[in-house]
Design a binder for these strands. Structure first.
Lengths: 213, 213
DNA sequence: TAGATTGTTAATCGATTAACAATC
DNA sequence: TAGATTGTTAATCGATTAACAATC
């Protein structure tokens, strides 16, 4: 079956559709046209229809899209229609912030453990779980069939740890370290480079003043 | 002067160039060609030259780019060649994580205050600063001429608070709340929607299994 | 000077938008 | 049925890549 490659631009937008549809559901709205949704999301109706039709014809001529249905379909596409076990590497502030983020659990991401090398924090309870020593990564990944790991340690140790995670069976790395990790093609990385994000903000703020001239 | 609009794709890549050049400097490398850099960054040499030439001719034929010089130039472009005062709204885990993130200070982002509505955390010292009550936002923004604010509170209160921040003179909002904020055209927003990032990771992990079929 | 590599123009590729026939 | 709105094809726009003359 010839599967057309989905572009990064589309993948980027998918969770945003999901969020808007969720909000609409909460407001009790039942159906929406691509035109109405395009106004809310500040996209073109054309783009919405093109994006969705990468995955199937979820709408109905003359009616639009059923919000609940489309929300469910996107959940399936995003692979969040079932639960995923997850671990966090690094119990620093960021690791703890993620562990306490109840929204993730709501979306089906279950945090099974946090790992840290510092004996002082090992055993500490954070969110629904606790901090384990790095030596137990292997064991816990295998016990809970963990496929996802958030990496919240400095770049130097991150490289080694990620190798280990992959060897133990993790296939999705949520990387908060300031490195571009090299991984085999059957492993995916999603980078969250916060300082780069802040620099982009800084660039745009600079533009405002530049444009004034 | 006709200033050509810089595309989002270029802005997206700028901080990454900056990071690679910084790493090269740390390694003591003095010069690099677009070709060599393209191999490290997994881009095309053409793209690198095109990107940089949006801002000026920083290279030299037959030689390449002087790393220190290019690093400095990009810092100027990114508007990080001078310090910026910044505040954080919300002293939850994420707000605290950001406040403790020493990398920001290194890049010239000085966190002047964290604000929270919870009396229990007010006065608490975090990183180089402390937690103030929300009532003092106005005063502190004006005292320190704060232009940047990181918003780390839930979406419901975020909308109102952001209005206030803008009224008080903030022009750059680093938004971690799960909303798309409406702001005037002389204010910029950089969104960090962590749950959407996690969903993209989830999508890609799903793809791996899908592709196996 | 000869070799290397840029800056820049032209060609290609891909993503977005427009248009409209199909159909609920 | 008439009106609305999709799914999809075609047109446009923009970004990436290729090519090469300029020049250090």
């Amino acid at each position: 079956m010839a599967k057309k490659e989905i572009s990064q631009a589309v993948i980027q937008r998918l969770p945003r559709y999901y969020r808007y549809l969720g909000d609409l559901m909460d407001q009790g709205v039942e159906r929406i046209s691509s035109n109405e949704l395009s106004k809310r999301m500040k996209l073109t109706a054309s783009q919405i229809r093109q994006d969705l039709n990468n995955f199937g014809g979820f709408g109905q001529q003359g009616y639009g899209y059923n919000i609940k249905n489309l929300h469910d379909e996107i959940a399936k596409i995003l692979n969040i229609d079932e639960e995923h076990n997850m671990i966090i590497i690094g119990a620093g502030h960021l690791g703890q912030a993620l562990a306490n983020y109840t929204n993730f659990r709501k979306r089906g991401f279950i945090i099974k453990a946090i790992f840290d090398k510092d004996p002082a924090v090992i055993g500490k309870h954070i969110g629904d779980t606790e901090v384990f020593p790095m030596e137990r990564i292997d064991e816990i990944i295998r016990t809970y069939d963990v496929k996802l790991a958030a990496v919240c340690i400095p770049k130097a140790p991150a490289v080694k740890v990620v190798e280990q995670l992959i060897a133990d069976g993790v296939v999705g790395i949520w990387n908060f370290a300031h490195v571009d990790l090299e991984v085999p093609s059957n492993v995916v990385i999603e980078n969250v480079h916060l300082s780069e994000s802040l620099m982009r903000l800084s660039y745009r703020v600079g533009e405002i003043y530049r444009d004034k001239k």
